[in-house]
Design a protein around this nucleic acid. Structure first.
Ligand code: MN
Ligand code: MN
Ligand code: ZN
Ligand code: ZN
Lengths: 144, 144
DNA sequence: AGTTAGTTTAGAGTTATTCTAATTTATATC
DNA sequence: GATATAAATTAGAATAACTCTAAACTAACT
């Protein structure tokens, strides 16, 4: 059975397992959200964009639930938050270490291809503190 | 005349010049804010912390004016915005390129000493876009 | 001193997000 | 399969960080 057939026959199995492993009940809402997030290429989303998508897919999910799910998914390591804008939160389905371009005009967040950037000689955390992440954001603007 | 005497005799002269050069009238409010910001070591502030400070210095300045000033100062290159938190804006009096530690527990922002970090092989901006800044944020947490 | 453009401000408005408490649902147990 | 219960969802209110508006004030020029 090919991967495609698997998707057609049991479209939710992968996502159900993923949620159960994270200790989250596979509810109708979480399944729809997880399918949009994890069934395909990695993506960068905000609560509003994900809410719009799930509504467009004809699944009624409240915005509160979208926020709840984003935080739960992040807490269980299925998502990672990327801070690039002081007025809204972005989430990334790629939780491995990588860095970002952020277009300040359009709000587009995109990955910097691996190898095209590297941070060298990381400093140790200040005394009494422990390292929790390193983020490089390359800010760009559309046009000149 | 020593630098200290200059400060005692004409405490605002430096800051007045700075504002005039930026095309901003040296009002009572902007002078008080600029003195707190630029008269001493470089610092990282938010609108709320700066407002609290200026009030503590017994200068009545509205929060709206603090926001206005922060943006005007940023636009004229006296300040730089540092994005580390998706719910509030931080400003830095050090406008030269340098990177930051951000304590996610306390909200403390501090500089990574120059030389302790370096970003190599910067990627070119995607086509149609122009580079506007590179920020490295090393996130830390208090304790374990 | 008079004029005016720039500045400040109170308070209302906005936006992203969180909270609350009532309803609904997934799952374990009978 | 029905029942119990903890977990999840939700509408709507609340919050927090700003931003806007339009009236009052002031710096700076004449
Ligand atoms: Mn994936
Ligand atoms: Mn300084
Ligand atoms: Zn990414
Ligand atoms: Zn700094």
């Amino acid at each position: 059975m090919s991967i495609q057939e698997q998707h057609v026959d049991r479209p939710y199995t992968g996502v159900i397992e993923r949620l159960k492993n994270a200790g989250l009940r596979p509810t109708r809402q979480r399944l729809a959200l997880a399918k949009l997030l994890f069934d395909g290429d990695d993506r960068h989303i905000t609560a509003e964009t994900l809410h719009a998508e799930v509504m467009a897919a004809n699944v009624r999910v409240s915005l509160a639930t979208v926020y709840n799910a984003l935080h739960q998914f992040t807490r269980s390591g299925l998502l990672r938050e990327v801070v690039v804008d002081s007025s809204r939160a972005y989430f990334d389905t790629n939780t491995t270490g990588h860095h970002h371009f952020f277009d300040e005009d359009t709000g587009d967040l995109s990955d910097i291809p691996d190898g095209e950037i590297s941070v060298s000689s990381l400093p140790g955390a200040p005394i009494g503190k422990v390292l929790s992440g390193v983020e490089v954001v390359v800010r760009v603007r559309s046009q000149q």
